[in-house]
Write a protein that binds this DNA or RNA. Structure first.
Length: 268
DNA sequence: ATGTCAACGATTCGTTGA
């Protein structure tokens, strides 16, 4: 089973590029981020015509996540548990029923910039960096519950986290950024260390592997990228891992997103 | 040399978010 994650940076802007990539890559399941659309405006027919079941969790203008699946989707839930007042559409879950049932979480983790800190170094309450870190703590709770279920499970999406220096062309320019600050990376490791496997690093080591290149300053032409789109696999899911790759060439196509798809192959 | 893109809601462009 081929499962992909893709931050499309707006479904309206990617109305041709996304179907074109789907027709090439033929994933069984895709989690999408930044659909930037309400549920009613999402062009589900385009994907249903290609044989995908479509589940969205959208909002106006910003954020928004979705799952497309050629296999049936069961027990769909929307929103990250732990804060009823959080209205940002960044989390969706469903169980994909194939040879084995797999719980799939699609996520769009908050960017967190600008970083605002008190003089003592704690994030300013109510600020975007505090929101990011609080969201990651909620995600950790949900991740632990997934492990406790002992079901094969994965969390895939735009994590807005550069895990290590080797995951950026120029780590020094990201040093103070919310994507690379120590608190952000520590929160990511805290989830990982519950017992998840980061799929890409289970298969490939070394620098030069990126999933995002800014539109600005010719970042793509200079290969000035970062790796921020990830798959975290539960132990029962990691046992099924066959491959993990980044569809880098998609960034060079017509009217690209600033992210490219990342995908895994599971023996499931 | 932050050099871009997308969505929106106001009026042909400014604001926000990334």
């Amino acid at each position: 089973m081929k499962i992909a994650t893709f931050n499309i940076n707006g479904i309206k802007a990617r109305i041709n590029a996304l179907p074109d990539w789907l027709d090439d890559a033929q994933p069984d399941v895709v989690v999408l981020q930044e659909i930037k659309s309400v549920d009613d405006a999402f062009p589900r027919e385009i994907f249903e015509d290609r044989g995908y079941n479509v589940e969205t969790h959208g909002q106006k203008s910003f954020n928004g996540v979705a799952i497309l699946s050629k296999l049936p989707l069961e027990d769909v839930t929307r929103g990250l548990p732990g804060d009823e007042s959080d209205e940002q559409a960044r989390w969706i879950e469903a169980t994909v029923v194939g040879k084995t049932a797999i719980r799939i979480c699609g996520l769009y983790l908050p960017n967190g910039n600008p970083v605002e800190l008190e003089p003592d170094g704690t994030p300013v309450a109510g600020g975007k960096y505090a929101y990011k870190l609080a969201w990651m703590e909620r995600m950790r709770q949900r991740a632990q519950a997934l492990l406790d279920s002992e079901m094969p499970a994965l969390m895939a999406g735009d994590y807005n986290i550069i895990p290590q220096e080797e995951d950026a062309k120029r780590p020094d320019v990201w040093r103070e950024d919310a994507l690379f600050r120590p608190e952000s990376r520590a929160a990511f490791r805290k989830i990982l260390n519950l017992g998840f496997t980061e799929a890409f690093r289970a298969r490939t080591r070394g620098p030069g592997h990126y999933s995002f290149w800014d539109y600005q300053a010719g970042a793509w032409n200079r290969d000035d990228g970062i790796r921020i789109d990830h798959f975290l696999l539960s132990p029962q899911c990691a046992d099924l891992l066959q491959d993990c790759r980044i569809d880098r060439e998609v960034r060079g196509r017509e009217k690209p997103s600033d992210h490219v798809p990342v995908w895994i192959e599971l023996d499931a």
